[in-house]
Design a protein around this nucleic acid. Structure first.
Lengths: 279, 279
DNA sequence: CGGATCGATATCGCTCGGGTATCGCTGCAC
DNA sequence: GTGCAGCGATACCCGAGCGATATCGATCCG
């Protein structure tokens, strides 16, 4: 199986239309048809059911689509990483959600910079749930992520620390004076529905709460009395005056981990991980 | 970058000799040289330093070797999985260490077989540390493994249960009568050194204890008074008469997890995981 | 029933992958 | 120091395979 064949197959499998796929690939349709037939012959399996009006995936095609996407991003990752490894100054891309892990991040960067032979660390600020893709297609070398919110599937991880969560409320809210609350107290506020964050697919779950993408948006909407949220302690550490944070006793604990692609062989990544676990 | 180029590069990078690599690939040496040059030009980077006596990897080449190996095994995995997905009877390969998780495994297989639309489950018995490779090159679809002994790097996992560990001793040994021991008690026995298991590379660590590969070997050597070992409770559940198991209070707990490649899209895998977590 | 749409097939030119022959450099033996 | 052996690079040739154009055949729609 060759990358070219895989690229062609993934295009057709995603478009479910030979003409459109060929256009997207920048080739004519006949060689595309022929390549797919050839791939099917090599594998000894039909990948697509097609009549002249409709193209659908077979069971086997479905599997190959998932595997093929992973392979294609692994290939672009390999290209990027190889080229960056050849750069004169060794550098390292660390992906973090904006506004995340403020203090930890500072300490980590300082401690790593003090290492002998430390590489330049570039920060890649990303939205929630993007870490995984960034690591898998080689745009980032390491990431800090928050379990169980972010998925670490297919990544190697090392736990840095675990913390509780706090409810963030308008300072004037009745619950804001409490020293602690429970999840039920917070989710049951009809006038203050919980904020909704985008899911792994980038779309928001159904619900009454406001749609937010980052902490700044969130805090503004809470201050306006439009929503509330339960977030990790450290993220609620230094709040605006008009907001209050109250520990939520029964909220699931949040674990901050450092994550990297499992076959990474960069010295800089290994160093950064070592420094991080010693903090 | 094409798979062919990657395959060629990995061969050269592993042999560090163009002639041998060409032989291994079943081609002549000149096209191999040319392909490597072409790959280097595409990436804009030297991958190998070569004079006419010696070939060495550059920094970039080192990175590409690691990435390339991962890609090549992903490709063979994709081929295998696609072909198996096309088979008439859906089937599923579950990798387990021989002698592992006896009771759990029985319950799991029974519960899954009772599911509607259950696939045939083939058991692939493997040696320690092989799970990861089997999953990554598509020889297995799911595995049961024991953290922290086995590595789950690059795999998705779900915890099934956690258990303590027991020391296995000859029944006649003074410690065998104790209701509990500590690690220090067991490791400090000069006449009964701890057994050594092969590491991830397949080689044994240095030490005085016996080298073992599976439980049968281990039990025999313990009965002969040649070695001792600390193993998970369940593995020491039904012992031969001449052996005794004593709980080790401060041994790290062992977690049995079910693991699968992160982009798996097989319904059968999803079903098995669901059944497993409900046990 | 006729036209439009879309995938498959036929055919052609050319690129590129693989082979053989040979060169040139390097380390080593004597 | 010189000759030789080992090894990678280069030159050149041939055939497979990739891509393009033209066309066919099936299906859906009005």
């Amino acid at each position: 199986m060759e990358i070219r064949e895989l690229r062609y197959f993934v295009a057709v499998a995603e478009e479910l239309h030979f003409g459109k796929a060929a256009q997207r690939l920048g080739i004519a349709q006949p060689p595309l048809s022929r390549t797919i037939v050839q791939l099917e012959r090599r594998l000894g399996t039909a990948l697509l059911e097609r009549n002249s009006r409709k193209v659908t995936l077979t069971e086997a095609g479905c599997v190959l689509l998932a595997e093929g996407r992973a392979i294609l991003s692994a290939v672009t990752a390999a290209e990027r990483r190889t080229q960056r490894a050849a750069a004169a100054r060794p550098s390292l891309v660390l992906a973090v959600k904006s506004g995340t892990a403020g203090e930890l991040l500072t300490k980590l960067l300082d401690a790593y910079a003090a290492e002998p032979g430390a590489a330049t660390v570039e920060l890649l600020l990303c939205e929630a749930h993007q870490h995984q893709r960034l690591l898998q297609d080689g745009q980032a070398d390491v990431a800090l992520l928050h379990l169980p919110f972010d998925s670490a599937a297919g990544l190697d991880t090392e736990t840095l620390y675990t913390e509780g969560q706090v409810a963030v409320l308008p300072a004037s809210h009745p619950l804001a004076g409490r020293s602690e609350v429970r999840m039920a107290d917070v989710t049951a506020l009809p006038k203050l529905p919980m904020a909704r964050w985008p899911g792994p697919g980038g779309s928001y779950p159904e619900g009454p709460g406001a749609e937010v993408r980052n902490l700044t948006q969130l805090f503004q909407l809470i201050a306006l009395g439009r929503t509330t949220a339960v977030i990790p302690e450290s993220a609620g550490a230094d709040l605006r005056r008009d907001l209050a944070a109250v520990p939520v006793l029964d909220a699931p604990p949040v674990t901050t981990v450092i994550a990297w692609p499992p076959h990474s062989r960069l010295r800089a990544v290994a160093d950064l991980i070592r420094v991080a676990t010693r903090l």
